[in-house]
């Protein structure tokens, strides 16, 4: 098994200037971050979750906005990080009482929160943030990793993914591999083989290429022969989860060849929710933030520059805007040629 990792472009270093524009960040805050530090999933009844809070922390550092970071972190630690194991409850509903309506964790949320803290510790030389990041990473490493077909995989949550009565599983979600975060964790807690975890994520994407579409299902299990199939009792689809995978791979500088299935199943209109087994397009995923992911893949694959209208943030919804900022941060920082005017 050869892991193809090109040299990852450095993310926000201690003194790296932010490439997120002030206006963009302002509109993101106005649209999706409340005064009390809650990052709101506007397309999902205004709830928040550990994932949205984690993205909020990461983006606050990328935007070099410590005040917002402090706000979001205060909310996150007081409202979500109450679990006995130290991880975050995943679902917070403003309309419910108590607000934390599901105390199970979502490991991608925990990974993003820890990653945000790690970035903050570096960016603002604040060891207390680094220490908290390390604690969370260590907890994930000791309780949220699971063996799947001989590989070390990320368990999507403490309950419900590795305890099926029929013995199938563990259920995995390849979009939970935030590769750049795993690289950061390797520095925080070297006692855990985070590199092996990263390799598993890439291997899942590689094995999914054997299917008709080449796309990994959002929720999958491994067959006895190690091949990938959609997880039972989950929707059979590549969709809003999976579209983050190429973004995470680009940000971590992983071999662009692995982007091809994602690129080939998209077009100028954007990405699609797709049945990974038949290739049937179930619905378009076409907000500007999502289209930018396609444009970024195109640029990396064949040098096509990013269309003008996608080069700045269009804050249509929390999720699309979040992915767009992460993509813009990557392109401006690591692929500036993609963002220059096309020679006409």
């Amino acid at each position: 098994m050869s892991l193809v990792l090109t040299i990852a472009a450095g993310v926000a270093g201690a003194n790296a200037a932010s490439v997120i524009l002030a206006d963009e960040w302002k509109s993101y805050l106005q649209g999706f971050v409340t005064e009390d530090g809650r990052v709101v999933d506007t397309a999902n009844n205004g709830i928040s979750h550990s994932e949205s809070q984690g993205y909020g922390l990461v983006l606050s550092v990328l935007a070099d906005d410590r005040a917002t970071f402090e706000r979001v972190w205060s909310f996150t630690k007081t409202e979500l990080m109450v679990r006995d194991d130290g991880l975050a409850g995943w679902r917070w509903d403003p309309a419910a009482s108590p607000n934390l309506t599901d105390a199970n964790n979502a490991t991608d949320g925990d990974i993003l929160i820890a990653y945000g803290l790690a970035l903050a510790g570096d960016a603002w030389s604040e060891t207390s943030f680094t220490d908290r990041a390390r604690e969370i990473a260590t907890t994930i490493g000791s309780s949220m990793l699971v063996e799947a077909h001989g590989m070390t995989a990320i368990l999507p949550g403490a309950a419900g993914f590795n305890d099926r009565a029929d013995g199938v599983g563990p259920v995995l979600n390849p979009s939970y591999w935030v590769f750049e975060a795993l690289t950061a964790f390797a520095k925080l807690d070297p006692s855990i083989d985070w590199n092996a975890v990263s390799e598993t994520g890439i291997e899942l994407v590689r094995r999914a290429r054997l299917s008709k579409t080449g796309l990994p299902p959002d929720w999958l299990v491994l067959n006895d022969d190690g091949t990938v199939r959609p997880a039972p009792d989950f929707p059979i689809e590549f969709g809003y989860n999976g579209i983050r995978i190429p973004l995470y791979m680009m940000r971590a500088g992983i071999n662009p060849v692995l982007l091809e299935p994602f690129r080939q199943n998209s077009d100028a209109e954007g990405l699609y929710k797709i049945d990974p087994l038949t290739g049937e397009r179930l619905e378009p995923i076409s907000e500007p933030g999502y289209r930018l992911i396609v444009a970024a893949m195109d640029c990396i694959s064949n040098g096509t520059v990013v269309p003008e209208e996608l080069r700045t943030l269009s804050p249509t919804s929390y999720y699309a805007a979040t992915l767009q900022l992460l993509t813009l941060d990557y392109l401006r920082r690591s692929q500036p040629s993609c963002m220059t005017q096309a020679a006409s």
Partner: peptide, 18 residues
């Protein structure tokens, strides 16, 4: 103040060790 909030939220979520 934050700890008091966290205590209450943990209690509501039945996370008694917290």
């Amino acid at each position: 103040g934050e700890s008091a909030l966290r205590l209450r939220n943990a209690s509501d979520a039945k996370q008694y060790e917290t």
